[in-house]
Amino acid sequence: SSGGSSILDRAVIEHNLLSASKLYNNITFEELGALLEIPAAKAEKIASQMITEGRMNGFIDQIDGIVHFETR
């Protein structure tokens, strides 16, 4: 797709992000992006959206560029 990722790509990214949230206590956007094979800024945006929508527990430290995952 030309304008970003398809629905399937997005679903795969979100699935992998949720998997990462179970493996890590926290991770930088750079590391997360590398893990998900997407730019760091996109990793931040998707993580932020999932947390806001209540689909993933955690919070974002924008100063240090880190996602902190919280286990249920």
Rank of each mutant, 00 (worst) to 15 (best):
R55Q: 06
I38Q: 02
D64K: 15
I46W: 05
A47L: 11
T52P: 00
N25I: 12
F29Q: 00
I13R: 02
V67R: 01
S19Y: 09
V67Q: 01
E37H: 14
D64I: 11
I46P: 00
S48F: 09
G58H: 02
A47N: 00
L17M: 14
D9S: 04
D61A: 06
L32E: 00
L18C: 10
I60S: 01
L35K: 04
R72A: 14
R72G: 13
T52F: 11
A47P: 00
I51C: 04
S2W: 00
A11K: 09
G4M: 08
S21P: 02
R72T: 13
K42S: 14
S48K: 12
N26W: 15
A41S: 13
Y24F: 11
I7F: 12
N16T: 08
A41Y: 11
E53Q: 09
L23N: 09
I66S: 09
E70R: 08
A47W: 03
G58E: 01
G33N: 01
N16K: 15
A34F: 10
G58R: 01
I46K: 01
R55G: 03
A40F: 06
L23K: 13
I7G: 12
G4C: 12
A41I: 09
A20T: 08
M56G: 01
S1I: 10
E70M: 07
R72I: 10
G3F: 04
F59M: 08
S5A: 13
G4Q: 12
I27G: 00
I63D: 09
L8D: 13
R72H: 13
E44Y: 10
L17I: 15
I38M: 06
A43K: 00
D61T: 07
L18F: 05
E70S: 06
H15N: 14
P39D: 10
S6I: 13
E70L: 09
T71F: 07
G65L: 05
E70Q: 10
G65W: 03
S2K: 09
D9T: 05
K45N: 08
D64M: 15
Y24M: 08
A11M: 13
G4H: 12
I60G: 01
K22C: 11
I60V: 09
N25V: 09
I63F: 08
E31C: 10
F59K: 08
K42W: 15
A41G: 08
S6K: 12
T52A: 15
E37T: 07
G3R: 09
N26C: 15
A34V: 11
N26P: 07
K42I: 15
V12I: 13
E53D: 09
S1L: 06
N57F: 10
N26M: 14
F69D: 02
N25D: 13
N16D: 07
A43I: 13
E70Y: 10
G3Q: 13
A43C: 07
A34S: 08
E14F: 05
M50E: 00
I13V: 09
Q62T: 14
I60T: 03
L18V: 09
G54M: 04
S48L: 12
F69V: 03
S19E: 15
N57K: 14
E37A: 12
N16Q: 12
N57G: 11
D61S: 10
M50V: 02
I13H: 06
A20V: 15
G54Q: 05
D9E: 11
S1E: 14
R72C: 12
H68P: 01
E31A: 12
S19H: 15
E70H: 10
R10T: 11
E37D: 14
T28Q: 02
G4W: 00
E44L: 14
A43V: 12
N57Q: 11
A11D: 11
T28D: 03
A47Y: 03
N16F: 12
S19D: 11
A20I: 15
Y24W: 07
E31I: 07
H15D: 12
S6P: 14
K42Q: 15
L35H: 04
S48I: 10
S6W: 01
H15R: 14
L17V: 06
M56S: 01
L32W: 02
I66N: 05
L36C: 05
N57C: 13
L32A: 01
L17Y: 02
A11H: 13
E14M: 07
V12F: 09
H68W: 14
E14T: 03
Q49Y: 04
E37W: 06
V67T: 02
S48T: 10
E37V: 06
S19R: 15
I63M: 09
H68T: 04
G54H: 06
S19W: 12
Y24S: 04
R10L: 13
M50R: 01
I66A: 07
I60P: 00
L8W: 07
I63A: 13
E44K: 13
H15A: 14
P39Y: 03
R72K: 14
I51D: 01
E70N: 10
Q62H: 15
I46T: 04
G3V: 11
S2G: 11
T71N: 13
S5Q: 14
F29G: 00
S1K: 12
D9P: 09
F29D: 00
I66E: 06
I46N: 00
Y24G: 05
N16M: 14
A43D: 01
A40K: 07
F29V: 05
G4I: 12
L23R: 10
M56D: 01
A41W: 15
N16I: 14
G54K: 07
S1F: 01
I38G: 01
P39M: 04
I66D: 04
L32H: 00
Y24D: 03
I60Y: 03
I51N: 01
E53T: 08
I63G: 08
E44A: 15
A47V: 14
A40Y: 04
Q62C: 09
T52R: 14
N26K: 15
R10V: 13
E53V: 05
P39Q: 05
A41K: 10
I7L: 13
L23W: 08
G3D: 13
K22F: 08
T52L: 14
N26H: 15
I7W: 12
S21G: 07
M50A: 04
A43R: 01
E53H: 06
T28C: 04
E31M: 08
S5G: 13
E70A: 07
I7Y: 14
S2A: 12
G4A: 12
G54R: 06
I27T: 03
Q49H: 06
E37F: 07
M56K: 01
D61H: 07
I46L: 08
R55C: 05
K45Y: 10
S5C: 12
I27V: 07
Q49L: 07
E37Y: 06
I66F: 06
E31R: 07
A47Q: 01
N25F: 09
N57W: 06
S6C: 13
E53A: 08
N25A: 12
L17N: 02
V12R: 11
A34I: 13
N16R: 14
A34E: 09
S48R: 14
L36Y: 03
T52N: 14
I51H: 01
E30R: 07
T52G: 10
P39V: 05
S19L: 15
E30S: 08
I60F: 03
L18R: 06
G54V: 02
M56P: 00
G54F: 02
I60R: 00
G4E: 14
Q62W: 15
H68N: 06
Y24V: 07
V67E: 01
P39A: 06
A11I: 10
A20Y: 15
I46F: 07
D9K: 03
D64W: 11
I66H: 07
S5P: 10
D61L: 07
S48H: 13
D9F: 02
F69W: 06
A43F: 03
I27R: 04
S21H: 03
A34Y: 11
S21I: 09
E14L: 05
D64N: 15
L8A: 11
G33T: 03
D64C: 15
N25G: 08
N16C: 12
K42V: 15
A47M: 06
